[in-house]
């Protein structure tokens, strides 16, 4: 159902906008309809170019040249139901006004579907306006919506950052994977990957995980391999973990068993325990292979 506005609005061709792009350290790429790599720590850097006939738009909206207008971008997140302003620029009374929309959108308030609404807004009218023209500041004279899905339905790995100086871990370490021992408890509450805020290389790589540089990719690969290694170590050193037991869905026991089965589908837990004990170097190489350490994407 189209919305009926109680004031004059110009035809849609007074504004022409290009497609949205996502800026990454390696350049710009088209903004896709789904961003499966997005999470709450991701800051989206977005861009689109546009051209606005500021004079024609005023005339066809019944507004005088002296009316103050803006081009702005508003975001709306479906799961938090929050909205906010991402970007804004004044629109001069000239046709063919070229503008580059550029902004960064932190992930804190986002989630679910993200709508990006590009609008031309009346900020202040001026004497000489048509009686049918918009008068209320904020009136939307033109708008365009783009909707995208931000996250995959997969559960995110529990990650937190901390200064290791304040924790009982080595101050220079890059990360620490905490795993509890209650196999029946929820895995999401039993596992926590702590990243050391003092470790600039790792922090940079994790913050850029949605659009990593080549160097970041290597760091993230090392991190993935080590997380898998620590999870497997835990699985193999917990004597109570048994691959014939049905652990509750989402429990630590179920997750540890899954990691072992996905990494080494041909091995039983007992065989893995034996190899880790008798040939630790070979076992370590197997983990590198299973986690594809430093393999090109």
């Amino acid at each position: 159902m189209s919305r009926v506005f109680p004031f004059l609005r110009p035809p849609s061709d007074v504004v022409s906008v290009g497609p949205w792009s996502r800026l990454t350290p390696d350049g710009a790429e088209p903004l896709t309809d789904t961003l499966p790599d997005w999470d709450y720590s991701t800051t989206l850097a977005l861009h689109r170019a546009g051209s606005v006939d500021g004079l024609r738009l005023r005339r066809l909206s019944g507004l005088p040249i002296g009316a103050t207008l803006d081009v702005s971008v508003q975001w709306f997140a479906s799961n938090s139901a929050l909205r906010g302003r991402a970007w804004r620029i004044g629109l001069p009374a000239e046709d063919g006004f070229e503008t580059n929309i550029d902004f960064r959108l932190p992930g804190d308030d986002l989630g679910g579907h993200l709508e990006l609404i590009t609008s031309v807004i009346l900020r202040a009218s001026a004497p000489g306006a048509s009686p049918a023209a918009a008068t209320r500041p904020g009136s939307v004279l033109w708008s365009d919506r783009h909707r995208l899905k931000l996250e995959a339905d997969n559960t995110l790995f529990p990650i937190a950052t901390a200064d290791f100086h304040d924790l009982p871990y080595p101050t220079g370490a890059a990360w620490y994977l905490h795993i509890d021992e209650d196999l029946e408890s929820a895995a999401l509450g039993s596992i926590l990957l702590l990243l050391n805020e003092r470790h600039a290389v790792v922090m940079r790589a994790v913050e850029a995980a949605s659009a990593p540089t080549e160097a970041d990719r290597r760091v993230l690969s090392a991190l993935r391999t080590d997380v898998m290694r620590v999870l497997l170590d835990k699985a193999l050193t917990l004597d109570d973990l048994n691959d014939h037991v049905e652990y509750p869905i989402g429990s630590l026991g179920a997750v540890l068993l899954n990691v072992a089965r996905i990494a080494f589908p041909a091995f039983s837990l007992e065989a893995l325990r034996r190899e880790r004990q008798t040939a630790p170097a070979l076992f370590s190489s197997r983990v590198q292979d299973a986690s594809q350490l430093l393999v090109e994407p």
Partner: peptide
């Protein structure tokens, strides 16, 4: 009702206070 045709987010603090 106004929010259907007005973008409050586009306004500055003083303009919003007036609304």
């Amino acid at each position: 009702r106004w929010g259907a045709v007005v973008d409050f987010e586009a306004l500055d603090q003083n303009e919003l206070r007036r609304q």
